[in-house]
């Protein structure tokens, strides 16, 4: 029920190959990504584990849509 709130953008878990591609394109390590807690209510139904990367499709006031990535950490 909570996931449908207008404040919450779409969260999706990305596959391992996508993850590698992402880290390669942005020349960043997994630990260098912004974080999201494993217990975060927005990803409660995604069945994630620590080490995963979440893709977030935000509605942006300036760009229309923007994509953001967060690394799942313990917490």
């Amino acid at each position: 029920m909570v996931e449908t709130h207008e404040l919450i953008p779409k969260h999706t878990k990305i596959s391992d190959s996508e993850k590698e591609k992402l880290l390669e394109t942005y020349q960043v390590s997994w630990s260098g990504l912004p974080k999201i807690n494993k217990s975060d209510p927005a990803i409660a139904k995604l069945n994630v584990k620590v080490g995963d990367v979440i893709r977030i499709d935000r509605e942006s006031k300036t760009a229309g849509k923007s994509v953001y990535y967060r690394a799942v950490v313990e917490g």
Partner: peptide
């Protein structure tokens, strides 16, 4: 449940998440 909001940022994080 799709529009109701609180002005307490910490509460919003707890209920709806960091984004």
């Amino acid at each position: 449940g799709t529009r109701t909001v609180s002005n307490d940022i910490h509460e919003v994080r707890e209920v709806f998440g960091i984004e």
